[in-house]
Design a protein around this nucleic acid. Structure first.
Lengths: 71, 71
DNA sequence: TAACCATTTATTGTTTTACGATAATTCTTT
DNA sequence: AAAGAATTATCGTAAAACAATAAATGGTTA
């Protein structure tokens, strides 16, 4: 079991690209990619806050406690 | 708006004290307190994972994107 | 196929912050 | 008031975010 970062679903719903999301969150596309692909080992609340704001969602829509492979 | 860490609700449901939770998560009571009272500015997924495991819940049960004061 | 664009991966450096260890302080409850 | 639990405060270390940049990869279209 591990914490899974799933941004793809909400990104699809909001029809926003990784590049634009990174831009609006205020981090580089490279770092967003790390976050998006389970390469990050932690997250700042300030970053999580920006993501929730831009995607208009809750942390629970993005973070999941589940099997490694994703749901 | 900010990210709120709300452990109290799940702790009450599971009837577990801060001391025991800290113990089972594997962090010091001092650090759990910091996390519990909005003093932390980030969280490691490994820690979030332990919390979810011990409290048998999802990140969304603990993290909330809401007003500073809490809901 | 080749050019193009977006995304991912990799590297390096800086800054932030978690977290431990510890002690002091402040509840809380009996 | 006393005892225990929780919070707060310091200090130090290790971990990791994130920036900046460049290189590699992947998909799309002419």
């Amino acid at each position: 079991m591990a914490i899974i970062v799933n941004l793809d679903v909400m990104m699809a719903k909001r029809k926003i690209s990784a590049g634009e999301l990174a831009d609006r969150i205020g981090i580089t596309p490279a770092n967003l990619s790390i976050l998006k692909n389970q390469k990050a080992k932690a997250i700042r609340f300030s970053t999580l806050e920006q993501i929730c704001k831009v995607l208009n969602c809750q942390p629970g829509d993005i973070l999941e406690y589940a099997e490694e492979a994703g749901k």
